[in-house]
Simulated scan of single mutants.
Amino acid sequence: MKQKDIGDILGGALMIGFGIFAMIYAQRYSFGSVSQMGPGFFPVVLGGVLAVLGALIILPALARPGPDLEFNWKTLFFVIGAIIVFAFTLRPLGLIVATMAAVLLAASAERKFSLKGRVLLAAGIAALVFVIFRVGLRMNIPVWPRGF
C-alpha cells in the first residue's frame, strides 16, 4: 500500500490547530451577535472556518496516495531567516527596505531566480505592501529608514 498524502494531512492539521487556537484565544473577548459584532466575533468565526477548511483538506488526503516528502533545511533556514530579518529591520529601516531585504533573503532559497529576478520580485512586493498597508489600510508604519 502506498503512503498517504502526508503533506496535505499535515497542512490540514496545522490549519485545524490554528483555527482552534484562534477560537479558544478569542474567548477572552465578547462575542456579540451577528447584528452587533463584538471583538471576539471575527476571530471565532474565522478560526472555525479555518478549522473546517483544514478538515476538508485532510479528508480526501486520507484516501489518496501522496508523493514522498522531501525536507529541505536550506529553504527552512532562508524563509525563517527572512521573517526574522523583517521583524528586526521594520522599525529602523522602514517598510520598503525591510520588505525588500526579507524577500531577497527568502528568494535566495530558490536557485531558478536570477539576481535581477529577485530584485524585481522584491521591488514589486515592497510596492504592493506599501499600497496595501500605507495607502489602503493607512497604517502608521515607517516607510523609509529614519532620517529620510
Rank of each mutant, 00 (worst) to 15 (best):
G19M: 14
Q27M: 13
A107H: 03
I125S: 02
W73R: 08
V79A: 11
P43I: 01
R28K: 13
R91N: 04
I16E: 14
V44N: 09
A26T: 04
V49A: 13
S33R: 02
L115S: 09
F88Q: 07
F21T: 14
A127C: 01
E110H: 06
G117Y: 05
R134T: 09
I141N: 03
F130K: 10
I9A: 02
L121K: 00
K112A: 08
A123V: 13
A123K: 02
V44G: 12
R146Y: 01
G12Y: 02
I57G: 01
G81F: 02
S30K: 03
G12F: 00
E110R: 08
V135E: 09
I20E: 06
R134Y: 06
V34G: 06
K4H: 15
L56T: 12
M37K: 07
M100N: 00
F71R: 14
R138D: 12
D8Q: 10
V131P: 03
F41A: 13
G12D: 08
F18A: 07
I58P: 04
D8W: 08
L120A: 09
R146C: 00
F148R: 15
A61F: 08
V49Q: 04
L137Y: 04
A122S: 11
P43R: 03
F148I: 14
L120C: 01
Q36A: 14
V103M: 11
A109N: 05
A123W: 00
F18W: 06
V44T: 10
G117Q: 09
P67A: 14
L59M: 12
G38N: 02
A102Y: 07
K112T: 11
I141L: 15
S114Y: 14
A98M: 11
L137C: 06
F148C: 11
S108K: 03
I84M: 00
P43D: 05
V49C: 07
F21D: 12
P39A: 07
F21W: 12
I16K: 07
G17M: 08
G117V: 00
K4Y: 06
L62W: 13
V131K: 00
F31A: 09
P142A: 02
S114N: 07
R134E: 03
I96D: 10
Q27W: 01
V45A: 12
I24N: 03
G81Q: 13
L105V: 13
P43E: 08
P142G: 08
A109V: 03
L46Y: 14
R111P: 02
I57N: 05
V45T: 13
A109T: 03
V119T: 08
